[in-house]
Every structure is written in structure tokens, then in C-alpha cells.
């Protein structure tokens, strides 16, 4: 569904992405793992077209994303740090996104909005929100339009345990509907029951892309955190 071929991106002298090639297939739930600054977010942002890669190309359903913009209607993106117009209220942001996506009348998935209790604080301005509430708004927006692909950049960072569980349950339901889910996270223990594949990155390079079962077999560890720790030690 999403194919990245030999994607490279430099920020000044820093190589954020170095010849990265990935293939993501529908129905998979893929974890993007790697140390800080290894290029996970840059990879995600280049898939979304927010970062324009220097060389290589990315295709979505066979179309090069460089000349296409409609494909983003099929992606729900939850950024690591949600940045929203500060003087708008939550309700206004939600309405604006619905308006921009042009689906005022279509059925939208407001499950997370009600679960997170955002309905009661629709009048609050974005500038007054705490980091966790902001994160809830980002999550609600990512799932709002029933996208085929979900890209979640550290989804549970800053969320309280209850909301975090709600979000995880939501991810599992969506995954079971056959959607492609891409998650980055540093809390490996919570990825265990979510993911089916692992992409490990380091210094802008893609180290491996394996299914979770083959990773477990190779390392002999059942837990993802232990398996990754073993891989990291070896390198």
C-alpha cells in the first residue's frame, strides 16, 4: 500500500534518512522503533508529504505522492506534538477539519471524542489545553474520518493510563478491520499486543523489517522489549 524506495533526506549535514526502502501492506500493524533522532518522524512526515525527500520516491497505492495530494484523505495522522491554531476552540478545530475534508454530512467516527470526554470541553481554547488533552484531540482527529491508513507518532505519550488503554483498544479494533497501522513508540511493552511487524531504524538507516514472529524466533524472547534490547546490544 505504501512503498518507499531509496528515500534520502538531509537536514543540513545531518542525514535524517539514508536510503530507506520500506513496503507496508494493508492489514499490517507496524511498529517503527529506534533510538531518538533516528529518523522515525522524518520517515512518517515524508510519507505524509510534510517533508520533501531529497532523493528516492514514495508511492501510495501505486501513485507517486509527489504529484498527488488526494491520497492524504485516506490517512489519519496523529503527530508527536500536536500543534493547532492557538486561539481556536476544540469544537472549532474539529468543525474546521470536517469542513476542510468536505464531509460535513458523511458519517464520522466520533467514538474517541466521546470516550475521551472531549464533548464536554468543546468550548475550551487550544492554548489552554494540557499536553495530554492536546494529544487526545490529535488522536480523535486521526480516527475521525475512518481512514484506511493510520499513522500514529508516539500515540500514548502524555496520555493517562485510562485514555491510553482506550486508544489501544481503538487501534486494535481498527487493525482488525484490515487497516494499515504505523506506530512509533518508545514504550515497547505496550506494543506487544498491537503489532504484527517491526521496523528498526538507526542513524537514518533501516536496519531490519521483520514480522514479530520471526523476531521472536531469532532472539528466543517472547517480549518485544527484550527482543529489541537483544538486537540493540548486538549492534
Amino acid at each position: 500500500m505504501i512503498i518507499a524506495s531509496n528515500v534520502s533526506k538531509k537536514f543540513g549535514k545531518l542525514k535524517a534518512l539514508d536510503d530507506v526502502s520500506v513496503t507496508c501492506i494493508k492489514g499490517e500493524c507496524i511498529a517503527l522503533i529506534g533510538p531518538n533522532g533516528c529518523g522515525k518522524t522524518t520517515l512518517i512526515k515524508s510519507i505524509l508529504g510534510m517533508v520533501v525527500c531529497d532523493s528516492g520516491f514514495i508511492t501510495f497505492n501505486g501513485n507517486n505522492i509527489r504529484h498527488d495530494w488526494k491520497y492524504r484523505a485516506r490517512i489519519g495522522y496523529m503527530p508527536q506534538i500536536g500543534r493547532y491554531p492557538e486561539n481556536m476552540t476544540i469544537g472549532q478545530v474539529l468543525d474546521m477539519m470536517k469542513d476542510i475534508r468536505g464531509c460535513k454530512n458523511e458519517v464520522v467516527d466520533e467514538e474517541l471524542i466521546s470516550q475521551f470526554g472531549l464533548k464536554d470541553i468543546l468550548k475550551k481554547r487550544m492554548s489552554t489545553l494540557s499536553g495530554g488533552t492536546r494529544q487526545k484531540v490529535s488522536a480523535a482527529l486521526a480516527f475521525l474520518f475512518n481512514p484506511e491508513v493510520l499513522i500514529l507518532d508516539e500515540p500514548t505519550a502524555g496520555l493517562d493510563p485510562v485514555s491510553s488503554e482506550m486508544l489501544k483498544a481503538k487501534i486494535i479494533t481498527e487493525k482488525n478491520k484490515g487497516k494499515l497501522v504505523l506506530i512509533t513508540s518508545h514504550i515497547l511493552s505496550e506494543l506487544d499486543d498491537l503489532i504484527s511487524q517491526v521496523i528498526y531504524m538507526q542513524d537514518g538507516k533501516l536496519c531490519f523489517h521483520k514480522s514479530i514472529t520471526s523476531l521472536q524466533e531469532e532472539t528466543g524472547e517472547a517480549k518485544l522489549s527484550k527482543a529489541i534490547a537483544q538486537v540493540m546490544m548486538k549492534r
Partner: peptide, 16 residues
């Protein structure tokens, strides 16, 4: 000041 707004819009199905 609208860098947040621009960032939000760029990730949506809109032409730059």
C-alpha cells in the same frame, strides 16, 4: 504565528 495552522493543513488532503 500560523505555522501550526499550516502544519495541520499540510497533513490534510490539500494542495500546498
Amino acid at each position: 504565528n500560523s505555522s501550526e495552522f499550516l502544519e495541520l493543513l499540510v497533513s490534510q488532503p490539500l494542495k500546498r
